[in-house]
Amino acid sequence: MKFNYSREWLQRHLVVELDSTVEAGKKLEPDAAQGKSNVVTLSGRVSAITERNQVQMRVALGTLVRQLRSRDALTLAALAEKADISEEELRSVENNPTYTAGPRLLFQLSKFFGVNLNNLYQLSGETVAVDRRLYNRAVKYAAHSADVSPLTPLQRAELDMFVEVLNSAEAVARE
């Protein structure tokens, strides 16, 4: 195997690496490795949220925002401008499940896309408990929508169905 590169090539890529983190690879999550239960039941439909649930909910939130943006043919910059939020925050919400979405961002997204704010809060992973039915729907939705290509008709249908769930779950919870 031969390995060659020019100093110019390295310098060009260094500009990107200098303010980045580069690590890749499988993670070993201590909680999962120890076989702890993912969900601790509190009562009825409500469960305490664990670290794993939090990540899964945030993945669903990121997928939801990305697909709503795709549905409305908006770039990150365009949505940021129209919804009066920071592009960087928006990028983090879409791509980084360790990122905690702030209240203002969630409020603006709720207003812009017409999605129930309380349920967006639950998806952000910041609540201490989560509606199990919403959690299950969110995980299922994210699992079926885990790519970033343009929406297929089926994905569009699943997106519409999930938005409907988000906007009706609160009413169901009050029953």
């Binding site: 990107v16 690496e17 980045s20 983190t21 690590e23 890749a24 791509n95 980084n96 360790t98």
Partner: peptide
């Protein structure tokens, strides 16, 4: 990618 490296 580890989550914090996604942007790279």
């Amino acid at each position: 990618s580890l989550p914090q490296a996604d942007s790279w």
